[in-house]
Design a protein around this nucleic acid. Structure first.
Lengths: 152, 152
DNA sequence: TAAAATTAAATCGCGCACAATTAAATCGCG
DNA sequence: CGCGATTTAATTGTGCGCGATTTAATTTTA
């Protein structure tokens, strides 16, 4: 009743949610690497491009919010994307503290090459469609909960 | 019908599973930092300690498998845990290629301090119990799928 | 309107994560 | 036994992720 396994139950790896989340996230990013290498992108660079393919011309603050990453992570990512010629960026004329970011033609063109990646990744993970949907729903519930608590 | 939004639907951030997984994983680790700072642990060091609290005396290969991390990640993590005095490690006598790892007394004692962390984290994320269970189940399904494909 | 406060992004330092390579110990086959 | 093949972990180099700090532009306020 009062042995270790009872007392420390909450500290077991298998009873955490954070741990499988972390492990699966790492696993998926590892899988992406193979395919992203062909596009000369890292995973973080890839999701940054995704955000820009959806809406060209973003400012840093918008990208921070969309990707849940702050400028100390994204600044060097954007620098590398610019060096590769996929984006261009600079201070906004109206307010030079603000950084605008948009795609170059080369960045636009990459979108068609990227199209095959989701198809390939889908084959790697065989979840039932309702499981995938449920996973998606719960994860976004957590993210939205966080958004709300931030805006308080 | 054949406009951009249709063609590139699969490339939208909101249609990915990887992206919310990655964002939630980062978010949770960020939350842990506050509490782990008191124990002088990083998140990766914390899950390493969790593995050892469950089963003292592991070898590197076992830890790799348990944490889904390889030695190039864990070697420096273990070095830091040893520097902090929480673990000790060294070559196994029977086979000096193999690294054994076990807790020091100080490492054992940390377990009681760590006990409050799961309680604090539970308050941060308000998921229904059945949602948490379902999330847990699906994540482990993905991890087990990967295990199997490795052992082929 | 000049100084103080605020805002936005960049920089810095640290610790992962990982693929690729290296180093060292053991195994196994002739 | 001897030596090439294999196994195991450590090292190396790159790119995040993040908190804390810095830098620079704009806004507020006295």
């Amino acid at each position: 009743m009062h042995d270790d396994s009872e007392k420390y139950e909450e500290l077991k790896l298998e009873n955490q949610l954070c741990f499988p989340l972390y492990a699966v996230s790492n696993l998926i990013i590892r899988k992406y690497k193979t395919y992203l290498k062909e596009l000369d992108l890292t995973y973080t660079q890839y999701i940054t491009m995704m955000a820009l393919w959806e809406e060209d011309l973003l400012i840093m603050a918008e990208l921070n919010q969309k990707l849940h990453l702050n400028s100390s992570t994204l600044s060097p990512v954007l620098r590398r994307l610019e060096e590769k010629g996929y984006i261009e960026k600079g201070p906004l004329e109206e307010d030079e503290r603000i950084l605008f970011i948009n795609l170059t033609d080369k960045g636009y063109e990459l979108r068609d090459k990227a199209l095959k990646i989701p198809k390939k990744m889908a084959k790697e993970f065989k979840l039932e469609q309702d499981e995938a949907k449920e996973l998606h729903r719960i994860l976004y519930k957590i993210l939205e909960q966080e958004e709300k608590s931030k805006n308080k």
